[in-house]
């Protein structure tokens, strides 16, 4: 019996499935106008705006403003993609039965998660490239050295893990519309008051609190790395803690439908 539909089932290899999933998710993320706005356009506006208006805003640091702000904007880019974009995308995947559909495909849940993380990293690479170019055009002159580069990569990785787990926690427990609202609201709050773009010291007394937030820890770790060439172990540990708590909670509460 050989016809058009003669059964010949089988799963693709796991690496192939993960790559397929990552490619699809990153492509959809970059195609979506609102996601692109939050991933690239807003960070670039923040960077250009803060550097351009530094004097009138009274921003005054020991280092040139662009050197202080660019690492913060890179941290903001990580936050926007791994938290806001991921939460919104996953919320609507639940709503539209995409997760349900993939649940009966050969792709295991671990593969789905790996694909999502890979997609985040791909989008973040693109964001870093765009922001770095704009920063350099504005006079950014980083000299992090090997330790600083390691620190920046660690900050971005642990920051992605922490925010992604929190994003999945929101997306897996709230309705899609509520996820959309919460993800955007948290983004705005952290952008304004989370010590991500500007150093925690700029927030006065609240700055001490902010460095315990994942946004503050990520921003500080990024600045320590790219401004001073240091690995900020304490901030990295804070990110690790948020990632651990977020992962446990998300795994316990995530509902696939």
């Amino acid at each position: 019996m050989t016809g058009t539909f003669t059964p010949m089932p089988g799963a693709a290899t796991l690496p192939r499935m993960v790559l397929t999933q990552a490619r699809m998710e990153s492509r959809l993320m970059l195609r979506n106008g609102e996601q692109l706005l939050i991933a690239v356009v807003i960070p670039v506006i923040v960077l250009v705006g803060l550097v351009g208006a530094a004097d009138s805003l009274g921003l005054d640091y020991d280092d040139p403003v662009v050197d202080v702000v660019t690492p913060g904007v890179l941290a903001l880019a990580v936050l926007s993609t791994s938290f806001t974009s991921l939460a919104i995308a996953t919320g609507f995947e639940r709503r539209y039965g995409v997760l349900k559909r993939l649940g009966t495909s050969p792709l295991p849940r671990s593969g789905l998660l790996a694909g999502k993380i890979l997609a985040l990293l791909l989008v973040e690479l693109l964001q870093v490239a765009v922001i770095a170019v704009v920063g350099v055009l504005l006079g950014w002159d980083p000299s992090p050295g090997p330790a600083g580069l390691v620190g920046a990569v660690l900050a971005a990785s642990l920051g992605t893990a922490a925010f992604a787990s929190l994003g999945l926690l929101v997306a897996g427990s709230l309705r899609a519309e509520a996820t959309l609202a919460v993800a955007n609201l948290v983004y705005l709050l952290l952008l304004a008051g989370g010590a991500v773009v500007l150093p925690a010291a700029a927030y006065g007394g609240f700055g001490d609190v902010a460095t315990w937030l994942p946004s503050g820890a990520l921003g500080e770790a990024m600045r320590d790395a790219l401004l001073h060439g240091d690995i900020a172990w304490r901030d990295l540990a804070v990110l690790l803690g948020w990632g651990a708590v977020g992962s446990v909670l998300a795994a316990r509460t995530f509902s696939w439908e």
């Binding site: 499935m17 397929t20 699809m24 959809l28 195609r31 995409v98 559909r101």
Partner: peptide, 26 residues
């Protein structure tokens, strides 16, 4: 085959079908 949904709202039919196809061996 689900009763409804099961695809990304921004994906194209061809893209969606190729995606599911790529998760299979043959």
């Amino acid at each position: 085959m689900l009763q409804e949904g099961g695809a990304w709202s921004g994906s194209r039919a061809d893209e969606m079908l190729r995606h599911i196809a790529a998760l299979h061996a043959h």
